[in-house]
Amino acid sequence: MLMRRRPVVAWVGGSGLLFAAAALLLPFVGPSALDWARVWQRQEPDWSILTNLRLSRTLLGLFAGGALALAGSLFQSMLRDALATPYTLGVSTGASLGAVIAIAFDWHTVAGVVGIWAGALVGAGLILFVVMGAATRGGQLSSSSLLLAGIAINSVCAALILLVHGLTGMSQSFAISRWLIGGLDAIERSTLLVYMLVVIATGIIIIRQGRQWNLLAVGEAWAATRGAQVRRALFQGYVAGSILAATTVALTGPIGFVGLVVPHLLRGRLGGDDRMLMPCAFLLGGVLLASCDALGRVLLAPAEIPAGAITVCIGGPYLIWVIRRGGLR
């Protein structure tokens, strides 16, 4: 399959520019006014507010939004399901269950890592193996078995979250409710760096196999006739998408909408070629989440509105408008 080079360069380049512009400009948006003379002279607290808190939060928003949109477009192609999201295959709910258990049992830190993050990653890892085991039959793995196993495990994890939530004390119950809303906040530089490296590495692996996802989006049998190793591709796609979703959920809590809608909106403009769609979904998904978070920081300042709520409030009506114009495929 050949892509016309000019639109690819224009879309990916344009999206990349927007991503870079967001990274540079959004840290200047915040609930309090910065004293630019103090920032210039690197005086506190203005310098640290800009470089530590706002930059960290903006980068987390850009990479979290990107990771969710990329995982969403991957699962939609791989499973041939328009409603697939990063949360469809159970791993994100497994991460949420791990985080909720960490809150309920009060694991502040585990091996030097924040307990919620550790719990989320362990939960996601365990569920990844459970779903994979449940979906594999006689050494064969299909997108439909993966989807059904994922949905089943998803439901079980969601039920266990409710169970744990119901058995905790008042303080923990409040903390769990808040965590399940999801949201962005500044995190330590070292944690952010590790997260960004994981997302970049996983993202490159996924995007480089764009042709494979294009073939799977048509059908497994058809993909096999074109030389795709279907079982391996499904395994790789599931693990890679799960890594993106799990690491993101661990740091931000569950943030909906971005992973479902960004790929659909772009598919309406770009068509279904994942080689172009996926990089654009990553870059623009990041821009959408980080921008919505910046808006949430200032709309009711100093109070904040969770980024996920802003994303849905803006994206939902826009999606309906696009549907009414017939711009969705």
Binding site: G183, A186, L300, P302, A303, E304
Partner: peptide, 17 residues
């Protein structure tokens, strides 16, 4: 001065207030 009974705030707000 906020309009909310229990606002969500960031560490930046804690520092600046």
């Amino acid at each position: 001065s906020t309009t909310l009974e229990y606002p969500r705030i960031s560490m930046e707000t804690v520092i600046s207030l």
